[in-house]
């Protein structure tokens, strides 16, 4: 069973070494694939020096584009399963076995911060936004997910192949991707995980931008449409 760790990284040269070291300690047999999303701080050198496979995008595509490339790489390189992992240290490598165990009876597993109370705290407006997303995702998919925007997710090969061309591109793509996977007939389940609190200011928390993308997401979900970035077929 070959497993890939997909790490989208944009200007994460500082945070990356610790994350890669943690992965090497916990899951030495997983192939680490860092997708350098147009970084200008030498992220690719840090990744390569740490022994990770580093794919370099020529310019910043956003996390959706970086992930899609990672999925495509994993699918074409014959990996059986893969999981996303944050470059900024939000995810905890000790939780990986629990996440992957979920794949035994599902095509896709979402690591949830909230499925039982494990002490992950979010601010008030963010909590409200997340509650609204939960409600909408439940309405649209008929399934209950407690952490719709979690970026700690694992996938079996069929999902990797699907996401290699269909992964949504826009910011906050994780919610769309979840809905898309359920709608496309994949078995998706949640497992409870512990995550580190995000260090203040690291995420792109500019409120206006966030609000804009939140509204966009609501429209996409309510319209029942999907804003995927279907890949025009380039010769393989």
């Amino acid at each position: 069973m070959r497993t890939a760790v997909i790490i989208p990284a944009f200007d994460e040269a500082d945070a990356l070494p610790a994350v890669l070291a943690e992965l090497a300690a916990h899951v030495p047999d997983h192939e680490v694939v860092v997708v350098d999303d147009g970084s200008t701080d030498g992220t690719h050198r840090v990744a390569a020096a740490a022994g990770a496979t580093c794919l370099r995008l020529p310019f910043n595509l956003g996390i959706g584009g970086a992930l899609r490339l990672g999925f495509r790489y994993a699918a074409t390189q014959g990996f059986d399963r893969a999981y996303q992992f944050d470059a900024d240290g939000q995810h905890d490598a000790s939780q990986i076995p629990a996440l992957l165990a979920g794949l035994d009876d599902a095509d896709m597993v979402v690591g949830s911060r909230f499925s039982d109370d494990r002490g992950y705290r979010v601010g008030r407006s963010r909590g409200l936004a997340m509650a609204l997303l939960r409600l909408l995702v439940r309405r649209v998919t008929g399934r209950r997910f407690t952490d719709t925007s979690s970026g700690f997710r694992a996938f079996r090969r069929p999902v990797l192949e699907f996401f290699a061309t269909e992964y949504p591109m826009e910011y906050m793509e994780s919610v769309e991707a979840l809905v898309l996977a359920v709608r496309s007939g994949f078995t998706v389940r949640e497992v409870p995980v512990v995550m580190h609190d995000r260090a203040a200011g690291t995420a792109s928390n500019r409120n206006l931008r966030l609000a804009y993308h939140f509204v966009r997401l609501l429209i996409v979900l309510l319209a029942g449409g999907r804003a995927t970035g279907h890949t025009p077929q380039v010769a393989r």
Binding site: D36, R56, P58, R72, M169, G229, T231, V234
Partner: peptide, 14 residues
């Protein structure tokens, strides 16, 4: 976007 991804794949691992 597709071309950028294709380029990254063709360029291969750093």
């Amino acid at each position: 976007r597709a071309l950028a991804e294709e380029l990254a794949l063709l360029r291969g691992p750093v």
